[in-house]
Amino acid sequence: MKVAILGGSGKTGRAVGAALARTGVATRPLGRAAFDDLPAALAGADAVHVIAPNLHPDEPSYVAAVLAAAAEAGVGRVGYHSVASPYAPAMPHHLGKAVSEDLVRRSGLAWTILQPCAYVQNLLPAVRSARPSGVVEVPYAVDTLFGMVDLQDVAAATAVVLTGGEHAGATYELGGPALVSVADVAAAAGVAARRVPAGDDVHPWLRAMFDYYDAHGLPTGGVPLRALLDRAPASVEQVLARDLAR
């Protein structure tokens, strides 16, 4: 089996590629240059996993182009990396993923949609900067709850769904084993956490996301990920112990 990964050179794409490689699956990481001739770039692949660039200004067009090329190239299987709570009207980039999910579902291909919560790894740079004693600073509330998830677990689950036919037509929300706050993550790392205002140069979509996090966090369930992995997802403490040691 061979899987093409759009966005394969990014953080998520590299993790997915590594997880697939551990199962013996050949991968083909693709970047922006692939859009010069997408059908040719996808030729010979059995499946394609679509990871759009962060804050893509028109993610539905990006996804539609990949779906059309996949159909032209005879790729029968597609995975789409969406986001937890895609239909959240207050967050424009989430809505872009909601529209893209609809395109995937109507593509005529065998599809699986993954909706991961924020990665624990997103906070690692701030944690490293704050240690051994200090404060993790984020531009949103530190006490609202998230289903923060391990990127490596998300990648492993992606490998499972791309290589197993029983996942066609499924949508999986991927959260960690417990709801946690930024303050919880900081405490697990032995530091404190506080909210700081976002700068004036912050992308308006990010500012909207921070406002949403202030009010609601991003709670996400962990049952689907546990089922896909056939084990408990990694806890915040386990992720920190593993990744901070690197």
Rank of each mutant, 00 (worst) to 15 (best):
P29V: 07
A68F: 00
D150I: 10
A208F: 09
A15T: 01
A187M: 07
V223T: 09
G13F: 01
V236L: 14
R194L: 05
D36T: 14
A64V: 12
R194K: 05
V3N: 02
V135D: 02
G24T: 13
V191A: 10
V3F: 03
P177Y: 09
D143Q: 03
P53A: 12
P86A: 13
H167Y: 00
P204L: 10
A33F: 13
V78T: 06
A198K: 11
A187Y: 13
H216M: 15
T163W: 02
L124D: 05
Y119K: 01
A70Y: 02
A245T: 02
L30F: 00
L179S: 10
G221L: 11
L6Q: 03
V78K: 10
V142G: 00
V99N: 12
P86W: 03
A90L: 13
A198P: 01
A4D: 07
P125F: 02
A45M: 13
L95F: 04
T171I: 08
G13W: 06
M91Q: 15
F146A: 09
R32L: 08
V83G: 05
Y87C: 07
V185F: 09
P224V: 14
Y62P: 08
G217T: 00
A43S: 00
L151E: 05
A178H: 05
L6N: 11
V182F: 13
L151I: 09
V78Q: 12
P53W: 09
I113A: 11
G175V: 15
V16E: 04
A188N: 08
V48D: 00
A232C: 03
H167T: 03
S133W: 15
E173I: 15
D201H: 10
T23G: 03
V180A: 11
A245R: 07
L42A: 06
Y212I: 04
A45I: 09
A186E: 06
A88L: 11
Q152A: 14
V75I: 02
H81K: 08
V236R: 08
R231I: 15
P60I: 08
G164Q: 13
L240P: 01
